[in-house]
Amino acid sequence: MKINSKTVLFSLGISLLLGGCSGINQGDDKGKKTQAASSEDTMASVQDYTGQGYALPYGKETDKIANENLDQIEKAAIKLFKENYKTDVTVHNVVGAQGGATVFVESKGEPHFYTYAVVPIDEKEKKVKGDEIWVDEFQVENAIKGGLYHMIFQEEFKTLDDYLQSVVEEGQVTGKTEEALQNVGGHGFMTPYYFVALTSKEEAIKPVYELYVSKPNRSVEDLRNAYEEGSFNPEHLKVNVQLFMADKEAKPSEEIFNQVTKELEEMNSIPRGTYSFSLNDNFVDKQSSEGAKDNSLKRGFPDYIIKK
């Protein structure tokens, strides 16, 4: 199972990459025609996309087996997160992959986050090995830490949320659907407009996480008091903002991209961390849920927006 497990994680890791390309490539007429044809077959409008068509390599057979054993998989996933992470979760989607299936879950209440587990499947025996379900511990821990970070800095995140919502309400851009986050998100603390990712070197939130898993019913105030302010390094906490053009015919607007970039740079009351921003056209790839393309506009490495 070792090789298959790595394959599942590697495949999922690719599909969870939500950042875009840093270059801008408008392409010629032939490229536009090819993209249009591709859009009809493999792409979906971001406003309509709920995860339909999402797939992982070599998952056709395991997907069938998983769908025939959803109750068993759901019980195994709920048990794993409750016992190992003191967290109640809802199972939203199960997607077959080589040697197993990926189980997308969402936490109930706070800390709020999306993540996934992997359940091995024996294709020959057509058997789901629910008792062998497992997770990428680093990924799950960081998903919870992102949710905890949001809990203890709710005011700052509300400022960011209100700002991005105001940009969307102008009607020219939009974000992903809640259903897409639930069914194929799996990337920690997420909203339709951004997700939070922590590096392995992030230390400020570590005691908050330890307190939560030992005593999950502690108050937000207690969790906030456990936060080690002096250990915070903005380079170790990433806030990845991603928006899409609302019009199916529109290409990413440089005017909107420059406006949002400038306003993010000027804002001082949003969460501290390292920010990237990408603006995509209206479509996402059905199979990978990826929105970044050659024509996407991006502010990111090595020129991140840093909030210290």
Rank of each mutant, 00 (worst) to 15 (best):
G23M: 07
V167I: 15
A204T: 01
E229V: 02
N240A: 10
G291D: 00
T90N: 13
K75H: 12
V135A: 11
D161Q: 08
F113M: 13
A77D: 00
S38A: 11
K129I: 14
K129R: 13
G100A: 01
Y304P: 11
S269W: 05
K145V: 13
E170Y: 09
K60V: 15
N142W: 07
G175T: 02
F195T: 11
V173S: 04
Y54D: 01
M43I: 11
G171W: 09
V105R: 04
N282P: 10
N25G: 09
L9D: 12
K30Q: 10
E170P: 04
A37E: 15
E68M: 09
Q242I: 08
K32H: 06
D41G: 04
D63Q: 10
I152Y: 09
I3T: 09
L297V: 06
V260L: 03
H187A: 04
V105D: 00
M151V: 13
K79F: 15
Y163G: 03
N282D: 15
N295Q: 13
G23V: 10
G171L: 05
V135S: 08
Q165F: 08
F195R: 14
G51N: 09
A197D: 02
K129A: 05
F189G: 08
Q139V: 15
L17R: 05
V105K: 14
E255L: 02
G130E: 05
V284S: 11
T42F: 06
Q154D: 13
N69G: 11
K127R: 15
A76F: 08
S288W: 03
Y54Q: 09
V94K: 01
A197Y: 07
G27I: 08
H236P: 07
G51I: 08
E110F: 07
S296V: 00
G59Y: 01
E263R: 08
V208R: 01
E155C: 06
V46L: 11
N295W: 11
G59S: 04
Q154G: 09
E137I: 13
Q242T: 14
A180W: 00
E141N: 10
V105H: 07
G53E: 02
E202P: 03
D281M: 00
L181D: 07
Q35F: 10
V241K: 01
S107A: 12
L264S: 00
I306M: 11
A180F: 01
A246I: 05
L264R: 06
R272W: 04
T50K: 13
A66M: 01
T90A: 06
L12F: 06
E263Y: 06
D71W: 02
L160T: 02
I24P: 02
T90S: 11
S107M: 03
G99N: 03
